[in-house]
Design a binder for these strands. Structure first.
Lengths: 158, 158
DNA sequence: GATAATAGTTAGCCAAGGCTAAATTGTTTG
DNA sequence: CAAACAATTTAGCCTTGGCTAACTATTATC
């Protein structure tokens, strides 16, 4: 754990600019990002499956592959994982269904996604850009920030 | 490419809610996220190395490992990649330096990061939350959105 | 200046998330 | 209803980014 950094003072090289955060806090930032990366693909799949069911009545692997711009083999492998995680049920060669848990995750993700998307539009971001940015940002926005985004959007729209 | 989705009309299952975007646009969203994931770790390392040099006068592998909450072996391996990419120069067992290109990347990343961080604070997000969210969001914010964030922050602070 | 402590590297493991090619199952249609 | 086509799965490959353990180099201390 030894931290020779502590031997230096905060200003010994101070070309100003924002200071480095304390090591523990800095570490937590990166850990949070790594954790988000572990979960976000799963959430994206579940969210998309939910959307497909909602809008089309069913979710088929080929549609997922098309919309994610990924091979069918990749989707197939992923579906196995989602199955193991208890998020979807599927019979071979048939379309997919979300479990209770999967539905809850889809719902949460969708809500989150929408808050971010509407916030960006309220900020004045162009629709297609907002969609792209929202897709990337949604998994990295804390509940606190999400609540603030939602309030902001509501104020702008009333 | 065959897309049986097109056989359905947009409203055939319309429980309303936002509609699905067209396939091509939807695909672009996910592709953009995947691309960001490929580059963001690299950028994070380069940005951190830049910050360490800036604030401490040097960047040592142990400090990077501590701040990223990652093992030294992981850092060592990553540094080799950064070397191959022409972003850093390093002699074995010595501290690191950024190449021209590395410095440019560090500068860009730092600027981007700061815009997002200051924006979140201006929005009213708590400092430590803002730091965490900014770390995750920075790689997923388009230039367009970034510019809007910057304008917003400036207006709030004047 | 020898030894202990610290820092860095290497080897080898693992899981995730891509891919292509080949095999299998389902569906449509002549 | 058989053949062609479409959808899904499986097998096997690759790269990334983690890890631990063992080794090497540098630095600090007595």
């Amino acid at each position: 754990m030894s931290d020779h950094e502590q031997l230096r003072t905060a200003t010994s090289h101070g070309q100003s600019g924002d200071a480095l955060p304390p090591v523990e806090q800095h570490a937590k930032q990166y850990e949070t990002v790594r954790y988000a990366h572990e979960t976000e693909l799963i959430e994206d799949y579940v969210e998309l499956i939910g959307d497909l069911i909602r809008h089309r009545g069913e979710a088929r692997a080929a549609d997922i592959a098309n919309r994610m711009a990924v091979s069918q083999a990749t989707v197939s492998k992923m579906i196995r994982r989602l199955n193991e995680l208890g998020l979807v049920t599927s019979k071979p060669y048939r379309s997919l269904f979300l479990t209770e848990e999967g539905q809850a995750m889809a719902e949460t993700s969708r809500a989150r996604h929408n808050v971010v998307l509407h916030f960006l539009r309220a900020l004045g971001v162009d629709d297609s850009t907002a969609r792209i940015d929202a897709e990337g940002m949604e998994h990295h926005v804390s509940d606190e920030t999400l609540a603030i985004m939602q309030r902001f959007t509501e104020q702008r729209q009333s």
